[in-house]
C-alpha cells in the first residue's frame, strides 16, 4: 500500500544471494515483458477500455451516437432494446442509449469535481496536520473526526439543502463528504514518513524543513493518497448518482444517470431496460475504476 508502481524492496530480498549485487536482477522493462503484463490482466485492459470510452463519451458524445438525447419520438414510446435503439427508449420515446452517452459528461463532471474538492481540501488538511503537529494537528484532526462521525450522505444532503439542487451543488456536496478520508490518509502517511530513519537522516544531514517536506515527505506520502483518489472516483460516481436518483441533481430533462434510473422506476414492470441498463452502465464504470485503482495499489509491485 506504500509505493505505487515501484519495485518492491522485499520481493526478491529473501532469495538474493549474499554479496551479489542485486542490481543485476532488477526488473528491466522490455517490450515483451510489458506485453505479457497486459495479457495476464485482461480485466485491467477491459477496465482501461471502459474508462477510455466513458471519457470519450463525456467530451465527444457525437462519437457514440448522433441522436438527440432530449427529443422524443411519440411513436416510439417504451420500445425494448433492439437494433434501432440499443438501450431501448423511455416513456417519452427518447433514445436511452443517447441519453446515457450524453449523461456521461454530467456525471463525469460532477465526479471529477467532487474528487478534486475532497483531494485538495482533505490532503491539504492532512498535510498541515501531520507536518505541523502540536495543537494545530489536534484542532484539525478533531474537525476531521467530526466530519467522519456524520455519515457521508447526510453531510452531502446538508450541503445540498444549503446550496440547492444542481450538478455542481451535488458535486460539492459529495466532495465535502470525502474530505475526512483524504485528511486521515494523508496525515497518517505524513506521520509515517516523518518518523522514518531516512527523514531523520535528512535532518541530520542539515536539510531544512522545506527541503525535507518537498524532497522526502511529500513524494513518499503521496502514493497511498493517489490510490485513495482513484478509489474515491468510484465512490463519488455512486454518491453523485445516489443524490441525482433522490432528485437533487440537475433538473429533469438533463440525462443524469441517477435521474435516468429514477425515471425508469415507474415502468419496472413493463420496461425493465430503462433502469436496468442505465444502472448497469454505472456499475460497470465503477467496477472499472476500482480495478484500475487496485492495479495502482499494488499489482504493479507484485503485492497481493
Amino acid at each position: 500500500m506504500t509505493e505505487a508502481l515501484t519495485t518492491d524492496p522485499s520481493a526478491g530480498a529473501g532469495l538474493r544471494r549474499p554479496g551479489e549485487p542485486a542490481g543485476r536482477a532488477a526488473p528491466r522493462r522490455d517490450g515483451r515483458r510489458l506485453l505479457r503484463f497486459w495479457l495476464r490482466r485482461p480485466g485491467l485492459v477491459l477496465a482501461l477500455l471502459v474508462l477510455a470510452a466513458v471519457l470519450l463519451a463525456a467530451f465527444w458524445p457525437g462519437l457514440f451516437t448522433d441522436r438527440d438525447p432530449l427529443r422524443g419520438a411519440p411513436a416510439e414510446i417504451l420500445r425494448p432494446p433492439g437494433a434501432r435503439h440499443w438501450f431501448g427508449t423511455d416513456e417519452l420515446g427518447r433514445d436511452l442509449y443517447a441519453r446515457v452517452v450524453h449523461g456521461a459528461a454530467l456525471s463525469l463532471k460532477a465526479t471529477v469535481l467532487a474528487v478534486a474538492v475532497a483531494f485538495l481540501m482533505g490532503s491539504g488538511l492532512g498535510l498541515v496536520a501531520g507536518f505541523a503537529g502540536g495543537w494545530v494537528e489536534t484542532v484539525l484532526m478533531r474537525l476531521v473526526d467530526v466530519l467522519l462521525a456524520v455519515p457521508g450522505l447526510f453531510l452531502s444532503l446538508a450541503v445540498v439543502t444549503a446550496l440547492g439542487r444542481g450538478t455542481v451543488q451535488v458535486a460539492l456536496a459529495v466532495g465535502v463528504a470525502g474530505v475526512a478520508g483524504f485528511a486521515r490518509v494523508m496525515r497518517a502517511e505524513v506521520l509515517r514518513v516523518r518518523h522514518t530513519a531516512y527523514v531523520e537522516a535528512a535532518r541530520l544531514s542539515g536539510a531544512r524543513w522545506y527541503a525535507v517536506l518537498g524532497r522526502h515527505v511529500l513524494p513518499n506520502a503521496l502514493g497511498p493518497v493517489l490510490v485513495l483518489a482513484t478509489l474515491d472516483l468510484g465512490t463519488a460516481v455512486l454518491a453523485v448518482s445516489s443524490l441525482s436518483f433522490l432528485g437533487f441533481g440537475a433538473p429533469p430533462p438533463a440525462p443524469e444517470w441517477g435521474a435516468l434510473i429514477a425515471g425508469g422506476r415507474d415502468y419496472l414492470a413493463d420496461a425493465w431496460w430503462v433502469s436496468t441498463l442505465t444502472g448497469l452502465t454505472v456499475a460497470v464504470l465503477v467496477l472499472a475504476v476500482h480495478r484500475v485503482s487496485r492495479a495502482l495499489d499494488g499489482e504493479g509491485t507484485g503485492r497481493r
Binding site: 509505493e3 530513519a197 542539515g206 524532497r215 522526502h216 513518499n220
Partner: peptide
C-alpha cells in the same frame, strides 16, 4: 554524523543513490 542500524529504512526509497549521498552537500 550518524550511520543507522537498518540500511533498508535509512535511505529514501524514492531517491537515487547519487541524490542521497549529495543531500548533505546540497543542504550546506
Amino acid at each position: 554524523q550518524l550511520v543507522y542500524q537498518n540500511p533498508y529504512s535509512s535511505l529514501d526509497p524514492r531517491q537515487s543513490v547519487g541524490d542521497i549521498v549529495a543531500e548533505p552537500l546540497r543542504a550546506f
